[in-house]
Structures are given as structure tokens and as C-alpha cells.
Amino acid sequence: MKNLSPKTITLLALVALVLVAPLFFPSSFYYRVGTLMFINGLAVTGLVILIGYAGQISLGHAGFCGIGAYACALAPVHLGLPPVVAMLLGALISGVLAYLVGRPILRLKGHYLAVATLGFGILIFMVLSNESWLTGGPDGMQVEDLGLRDLLKSLGLSVPAAQVWYWFSGLVLLLGALLALNLHTSSTGRALRALHDSEIAARTVGVDVAYFKLMAFVISAVYASVSGSLLAMMNKFVTPDIAGFLHSVQMVTMTVLGGAGSVFGAITGASILTALPQALTVFHDYEHIVLGLIMMLVMIFLREGLVPSLIKRFSRRQG
């Protein structure tokens, strides 16, 4: 174990988790919860790059989820694109939009940046809910399925839809995590983490701070967009709420809860906050309160997030 890098350990742990978890699933409902965890985990992995690596906050990333979701809802119907292509198109649009919006926004710092991204998210939400001739408005609209199940069927494999989605989203999450982990140790990742620590010092060693912030913003937007597409296609339905403020806050909470600097931590955070509402259905009306409470407790007691704090505590006891 000693020779394995943290990156390999994280990846192996994730692979094991994806593979082993279904052994304990008593019903197909659990596949669905698992899929939700993976999809949220994907968006949150993107936020790890933005928040954890580069130290920039966004309260509007649900906007990009919305773009990804509605790309999958609209493109197959209006442009006749296959759902997978629609997903890529959504990711492209999100990336370009993040680039255009990010250039002016990322000059801001701290709460100014938070408010500006918040505004962006609200903007997307408003467009999706008001342009009902196109998006169906607040009532939402149907989304075509990814078609993976049909593909498998034509190959002679009959797999329940919930399981198809479980394995597919697990695979996408692993890919996303692999990219994020590789980024962490690359020179780009070092530059991002450097500007997180001290922008001035990063500039004095030759890091083009504005460019790297923008890059982190664009990458995380693409992650959010893909996660939005997957969510819409799995549910076969989408409403503007996917781009709503609450969803943005949920994603940030997941990231911060697990540990913004660690991919594994953030995915853990996403899993906990995805599973929690399912487990505590009694809290349904108080979901926001519970979210806020968790956020506060983590900020007070585990500033670095669940996983990094626990690892630190554990290794201190050992050492």
C-alpha cells in the first residue's frame, strides 16, 4: 500500500465502491439512489477543481446543469440529434458560455464572485422557466432516454433500466474522477492550487492567474453540464428546478461537506447528501434547514471537510 500514490488509492477505492455496492442492494430503488449519487458526484468533482483546487466559489453552477439537461431535452426533438450527441452539445454550450461569462466574472473575489455567479444561475433559471414555448416552462418537459438499454437489448442482453443507469453513471463518474485526479498532480493542477494559496505569488512565478481561473471555471461547467444531462435522461423528465438556486447550494454543500480539496471527499459528500433525504423522508419539509445545519456544523468543526479532517485526525493518532 505504501507505494501507491494517493491518486491510485482514491481511484481503486472508487472502483471498488462502484463494483461492490450493488451486492448490498435489496431492490432496484437502491440502484437509482446509487445513480443519483454518481451523477451528483460528477458535478461535485467539477466543483472540486473550481473550489478545492483553484479556490474560486460559484453559487450558479446549477445553471450549467440546466443547460446540459435542456440540451438533452431539446436537441433530439428540434435538431434530431441522438441523446449522446445532445449531451456533448450541451457540454460544449456550457463550456463556451462559462468562458464568456467567466472572463469578466472571475476578476471578482470572494463574496463578489459568489454573488455574480449566483446572478448567472438565476438568469439561466429564469430563461428556462419563462420561455415556455420552448422549454415547457415550470411544468418541465419530457426527455428522451439515452438508449443504452435498447442498445444492450439488441446485443441480446436484457438489463433492467435502473442497473444500466447505475453502471453507466458509475463509469462516467470514474472517468471524471480520473481526469480530476490527474489534473491535481499535473503542472496545471499545481498552478491552480498555487493561485488558491496566493494569487500574487502565483503571478510572480509566472502563472497566468486569469487564464487558469477561467480554465477551472470552464472545466467545472462542463462537469456540471454532463451531470445535468445524465440526470435529465435518467429521469426522462426535466424541470427548471435543475438550474435553481437550491441545486447550486446543494452542490456547494456536497463539495464542502466532504472536503473541497479532495475528489474522494467531495464524492463522499455528494453520496451522503444524496442518501440523506432518502433515508430521512420525514425531514422532507425541512430539507433546507438540515442542509444549512450540516453546512454550519462542518464549517465550525471540520473546516477542511469530512474526509480530509478525518484522515488528518487518524494519521495524527497513528504518527
Binding site: 499545481r190 492550487r193 494559496d197 496566493s198 510572480t204
Partner: peptide, 13 residues
């Protein structure tokens, strides 16, 4: 190259 005021090293790295 500059070594900035207050050192400004990357403390988390």
C-alpha cells in the same frame, strides 16, 4: 523573478 513581501509561499502545497 520576485520573492514577494511576506514570503507568500504556497502553504497548502
Amino acid at each position: 523573478a520576485q520573492s514577494p513581501e511576506g514570503r507568500q509561499i504556497f502553504t497548502n502545497l
